[in-house]
Design a protein around this nucleic acid. Structure first.
Length: 837
RNA sequence: GCCCAGGUGGUGAAAUCGGUAGACACAAAGGACUUAAAAUCCUUUGGCCUUUGGCCGUACGGGUUCAAGUCCCGUCCUGGGCACCA
């Protein structure tokens, strides 16, 4: 069926670009700052499975945009690399004994081949790979800066432990109590960890969001994750003890309604609070909660449990004695690990109070009986002495004044954000460049000894005791202390995968520099990233960590911008069709057949419903672009992925739509090769359409609305196809407009039209605004808002004339005859609406 | 439960400073060309009716307006994120 020889054209031009270094980028100082753009893709983890169709979506979008900007005279930095440390290569090594380096190299070669086969205009001289010692040299160096600044610290804390991956996880890597990577239930485990003090940057990370051109949803997610809340710290005197219990509350105005207190089971005051009579009960409860997994503790049922400590606290506002309970619905990790409970106005406290028959006192006038359910909305204060009658806002203000004046408390801010657990007990990651010396304590590996490389090991198996496989390599672990020269041991933890991706965008700027991580002049030349495109799955993890590192580098004067990524666009996920039984279970795609537009389960004959689902191995609906590139060409793949729908929205991969863009490209090929192409005067209508097309494609490319730009090009091509003789100018313009989208075809056409390559270096075509408007326009005539007639009128006709013609129309007369005209609305060049009674 | 997106033909989707709903494409049906097929080209294609015309139609129910897919209020559904955060 094929006439369009993509399999010859595409390798030809890919070779040309590579040999001529068409997309090599230099820091040309003569190009002003506002004519430079940094267009970045989220670099891939080179998995063994290779590229899937989601990758080229974002990569094509940035490639079109980069090629467009170059044609508009911008100097564009558009690099690609590989995020190559990570667990899959290590797990494969455990299974097969193959060194992760080998697996990773092989996968990178495959990824590079696949990416190149799509004809992207990357400057390959700038490729980086995070597992390359020349790269992680500087990852380690940045870690040392963080350490020197006091932002890295060691702690033995309960961390999220994945028993399957045998490593600690950051909070961000735990999803619903399960390991994000393997799905195993996450346990709590106390081990020695390196932590990064990201909490010190909570406010800066929050405030910076306001300056960014990012999707609101991603900003909202980061705000949620940081979780800043303003409230008060309140001190409760413990009855009969010289101790105070500090709580955090956002609603200090409800203090008169506090009828009991709760501390987390891990709270340090628990032993002191426990009275002899309660000791047995408390110990039993502590034992119980210790064995609950995180998931069980936060499980759906959320049945409240707890035990009375035996002690009482004094409510500072009224001197009442209130009991102190121990319960695991209070988390040690948030606030002070202790709360004042106001059961009338908090659902959780209410449930607990009901279960243990604690008093419920209403302090906000609500619409419900607080003995029956909690009232959690605002209301007038009652039973609150000097707060009675006030609303929430005023009452909080007044209470804060009272607390501060009497030393009972003060304003306080809390965050949900936790410090970042930065160490992993694994082999395939950047070694943390620290040495433990019995005399000098923790000492940094001297800068001149970086990069600190990974030793060769025989077994990649983690020890499972919370230590990395590196502990089994004594010749690597044992070393001399750089300070005192005595016997010392290396840190055996490695960095998490996120480390390398925290700063890779800076290394692209100066990838081969052996002296510094990035030359400051070059950094100033390109930063910040003008457009960053990638999946929404990195909304908190990568994008928060990278911002954190960048802000630290900024504070150290090492980078020139407070934020790394000025504009972020999330490409929508490419989903796939899946087939659902009546009981909602999904059937793998290879067990489904299509019959007369219906989908039938091959095994049972049951009729199935077509639904949209994430691509997954188990449903066998993962799509690899290689087959499509082979069968239809890279240009078709690029164009199809852009034509499917808006870049930002998720959309299903429906292969039957693919043929449409292929036909489109084939049609262009036939126009160029089978029709006469001559330097003729263009017919006015074609000329107008050409100018309209240039305008639409320009605007839509600029705004990343590639799907509508493509449909406009289709309209233009359909019109050209009707002509016997093709004006050369029209075909040249089409080639230029196509060139960011289907660069191989465009280069070939450009050459056929007698031009020197490369079309990528040509100027983007301009348009004449006057030619983008039609001489006559269709005017819609409505009567009472309903469409009744259409008129052809000259562009820019006067309102009076439009109205006169509308009323003169025979159809309209039928509608307005014998009625009173109440109102007449005229929108120039658009419509007339006559309102009658 | 909370926070963010989104709901338009058989399908992917266009159209949002409120102004012709369904551009472009797929699929389907019919036709031309052909010994035949593929490819290509042309026509039709939201639903209904009494079909040179009319009525209905953008998840559902209200509202604002001369005019609502678009704005406002409420409801339902789908996707994503967070989740005992005091």
């Amino acid at each position: 069926m094929s006439k369009y020889p993509f399999s010859e054209i595409e390798p030809k031009w890919q070779k040309y670009w590579e040999e001529h270094k068409t997309f090599h980028t230099e820091e040309d100082p003569s190009i002003p700052k506002d004519k430079r753009r940094y267009v970045l893709d989220m670099f891939p983890y080179p998995s063994g499975a290779g590229l899937h169709v989601g990758h080229p979506e974002g990569y094509t979008a940035t490639d079109i945009y980069s090629r467009y900007l170059r044609m508009r005279g911008y100097n564009v930095l558009h690099p690609m690399g590989f995020d190559s440390f990570g667990l899959p290569a290590e797990n494969y090594a455990i299974k097969t004994g193959t060194h992760p380096w080998e697996t990773t190299e092989k996968n990178i070669r495959n990824f590079r081949r696949q990416i190149k086969s799509l004809g992207f205009s990357y400057d390959w001289d700038r490729e980086v790979s995070t597992c390359d010692p020349d790269y992680f040299h500087w990852t380690q160096w940045i870690f040392e800066k963080l350490y020197e600044k006091g932002l890295a610290y060691e702690a033995v804390t309960p961390i999220n432990w994945c028993p399957s991956c045998k490593t600690g996880l950051a909070n961000e890597e735990v999803k619903e109590g399960h390991c994000e990577r393997c799905g195993e239930k996450v346990e709590k485990k106390n081990i020695r960890q390196w932590m990064l003090r990201i909490t010190a940057y909570a406010d800066k990370l929050l405030e910076g969001l306001d300056t960014l051109d990012w999707p609101e949803s991603v900003k909202a997610m980061q705000r949620n994750w940081i979780g800043r809340s303003e409230g008060a710290a309140v001190f409760f005197q413990i009855d009969g003890m010289d101790e105070k219990l500090e709580v955090y509350t956002t609603r200090c105005d409800t203090l008169f309604g506090a009828t009991y207190m709760v501390v987390a089971p891990e709270h340090p005051l628990v032993p002191a609070l426990t009275t002899p009579e309660q000791k047995a009960d408390v110990e039993r409860y502590l034992e119980e909660t210790k064995h609950k997994s995180d998931l069980e503790r936060t499980d759906l049922a959320k049945d409240k449990t707890g035990v009375f400590s035996g002690s009482y606290a004094i409510n500072p506002v009224n001197g009442k004695r209130i009991p102190i309970w121990i319960a695991d619905y209070v988390l040690i990790s948030y606030g002070t690990g202790a709360i004042m409970a106001v059961p009338a106005h908090d659902t959780r406290d209410w449930e607990f109070a009901k279960k243990f028959s604690l008093p419920i006192i209403e302090v906000l006038k609500g619409k419900v009986d607080v003995q029956q359910e909690a009232w959690t909305e605002d209301g007038e204060h009652v039973n609150s002495e000097w707060l009675d009658g006030l609303n929430k806002e005023d009452a909080i203000k007044k209470m804060l004044e009272f607390l501060e004046k009497n030393g009972y408390g003060h304003k306080a801010v809390n965050y949900k954000l936790r410090d970042w657990v930065f160490s992993r007990q694994r082999y395939w990651g950047e070694p943390i460049p620290l040495i433990h010396c019995p005399h000098c304590g923790t000492v940094l590996v001297p800068e001149e000894e970086l990069p600190l490389r990974l030793p060769t090991v025989d077994k990649y198996e983690p020890s499972g005791t919370g230590e990395s496989p590196l502990v089994n390599v004594p010749e690597w672990v044992n070393c001399k202390c750089p300070k005192c020269g005595g016997e010392a041991k290396r840190e055996t933890n490695t960095m998490p995968q996120w480390a390398g991706s925290c700063w890779y965008y800076l290394r692209y700027i100066d990838p081969k520099n052996e002296k510094v991580f990035v030359d400051p002049e070059k950094e100033k030349y390109w930063m910040p990233v003008d457009l960053y495109v990638g999946g929404a799955e990195h909304a908190v993890l990568h994008l928060l960590y990278a911002r954190f590192w960048h802000k630290v580098l900024y504070d150290l004067g090492l980078v020139s911008t407070p934020e790394p990524f000025q504009r972020l666009v999330n490409q929508g996920m490419i989903t796939s069709f899946a087939y659902q039984k009546a009981n909602k279970s999904l059937v793998p795609v290879d067990l489904v057949e299509e019959k007369d537009g219906k989908y039938i389960d091959k095994e049972t004959g049951e009729e199935l419903q077509q639904v949209i689902a994430k691509m997954s191995k188990s449903l066998k609906n993962v799509i690899n672009p290689d087959d499509f590139i082979r069968n239809y060409g890279a240009d078709s793949v690029r164009m199809y992925e852009m034509f499917m729908g808006p870049l930002r929205e998720s959309k299903p991969w429906a292969t039957n739509g693919f043929i449409g863009v292929y036909r489109f490209l084939d049609r262009i090929w036939r126009i160029a090769t089978e029709k006469k192409v001559e330097e003729t005067e263009m017919e006015a209508s074609i000329d107008k359409l050409m100018h309209k097309t240039i305008k639409k494609v320009t605007e839509d490319t600029e705004s990343l609305s590639f799907n509508t730009a493509i449909s406009q090009m289709m309209v233009f091509v359909n019109e050209l196809n009707k002509l016997e003789v093709i004006p050369k100018k029209a075909l040249e313009t089409l080639s230029l407009l196509l060139s960011p989208y289907t660069p191989h075809l465009a280069e070939e056409l450009w050459e056929m039209l007698g031009h020197q390559p490369s079309i990528a270096l040509e100027d983007w075509p301009g348009y004449d605004e006057a030619k983008t408007v039609d001489d006559t326009v269709e005017i819609v005539v409505q009567v009472n808002g309903k469409l009744r007639a259409r008129l052809q009128m000259p562009q820019g006709a006067e309102k009076e004339e439009m109205l006169r013609e509308a009323k003169a129309d025979s159809k309209i007369q039928g509608w307005i005859e014998g009625k009173t005209i109440v109102k007449e609305i005229v929108v120039p060049n658009k419509l007339v609406n006559i309102v009658v009674k």
